[in-house]
Design a binder for these strands. Structure first.
Lengths: 240, 240
DNA sequence: CGTGCCAGGTGCCAT
DNA sequence: ATGGCACTTGGCACG
């Protein structure tokens, strides 16, 4: 039978700990939450992040991010876990003796993710016609305005300034507003309105309405298509 | 030693399963990800949600939401877990025999969360002067416009229409733009511009600039203060 | 460190 | 199903 002292040692040693048992959970911080008695899993990782998982739902019901202070206490003969940082406190009180498991996990692998918005940008820079025929990106690095950044700034076939905003998901009214704000910002800077192109796999209806009001143009562009382009470009690179 | 057959039975019975061991992970779906060999915990819950946890970081490195199809396979004598739905596939391939744990968790407790934006709204409806003296909410239910919803619509002391937007976090330029869009929408509907009040604990500098341009007003209102008001109102209720 | 913004965001509730 | 939005959002990159 592992004890709280074992848990302390395991955490100090850099192991991952799991408690399994019935508990109540209280959180006070950015918000406040209460959870009555139920059987849960409590994961404590080597970076002192902590997760409370119920038997359903792929998200933890409560948590504390890495770097928390973790205290293992005993109240009325039962274990209590306090995970706190400057502004937040998570308190897990077991209502019966939980089981305790300790794991020594070694994991140094790189995590690689593809088809992000960043990948869409790379694809457009590799093949600007994805935006429209004759499109020429101006700056490879993101252009910074008074506030926020423009995904891609370029010139169209007629030499007009074009602001391109990329989205990997269906474009929302918020996306349109964001782009319009850039247009206004560039307008007051250069005294001329740039064209604005929102490149995304699709738009919501409301976004479409917002686009008509603000003369933002839509260009259908999917992350999938961008990945194809990147693969082709890469294939070419490795051939050269 | 528990086997994959035990895992299948446990899942069918509604237990929660944890695999611990070295594995590689591949995800294909909305994006694509690769993770090389490393030791991880794999949680499979009774709703067939699945989580892959590395020894650090409070978020899972890969996952699949509830309702996935979970297959336990054997490749080269080692366990493979496939979790798939209509458009997504998660494949976890162990590179050595993992340990397998099974938990029967009973958890029917209600989870209660306070200090949400919804609570701020309740507080304002209970005590409209939180917005400003003389403020009178018009609609308790959220008002639906052409698109989206207004948090609170009301009249000020002089009988002018007021749109109130509540935020539990420092207000951003996007919040201001969202509110301005409502103002425009209401303007074209009623032919007169309503006042717009953004009630939040604070604003970012850029939001402040955006507010000056669009005549959106700021009102300092914290979730904390709202919770106080709700407690007082509740106290009064229970007294009556 | 504040500010802004992407994310396989997730989840909740509306039409 | 789709849409619109809050979330203890988390995370990163950049000023």
């Amino acid at each position: 039978m592992l004890t709280l002292e074992d848990a302390r040692k395991a955490l100090a040693k850099g192991s991952v700990i799991i408690f399994a048992g019935p508990c109540t959970v209280v959180y006070e911080g950015r918000a406040t939450s209460r959870l009555g008695v139920g059987e849960r899993l409590v994961l404590i990782k080597k970076d002192r992040s902590i997760l409370v998982h119920r038997p359903t739902g792929h998200e933890p019901v409560n948590w504390q991010p890495a770097g928390s202070m973790i205290d293992f206490l005993t109240e009325n003969g039962l274990p209590v876990i306090r995970a706190s940082n400057a502004n937040e406190l998570l308190k897990i009180s077991f209502t019966a003796q939980p089981s305790l498991m300790v794991f020594d996990l070694r994991d140094t692998a790189e995590f690689e993710m593809y088809a992000s918005e960043e990948d869409m940008k790379k694809a457009v820079l590799a093949k600007p016609s994805l935006v429209e025929p004759g499109f020429k990106p101006l700056e490879e690095e993101r252009q910074v305005k008074r506030t926020g950044r423009v995904d891609i700034l370029g010139l169209d076939a007629l030499g007009r300034l074009v602001v391109v905003e990329l989205k990997r998901k269906p474009a929302t009214p918020e996306d349109v507003r964001q782009l319009s704000a850039y247009v206004e910002s560039l307008n007051s800077e250069f005294g001329r309105k740039p064209r604005a192109i929102l490149a995304a796999p699709s738009t919501t209806k409301a976004a479409r309405r917002e686009m008509e009001k603000t003369s933002v143009e839509f260009r259908c562009l999917t992350p999938r298509r961008c990945m194809q382009v990147l693969r082709e470009a890469k294939g070419l690179d490795s051939y050269l």
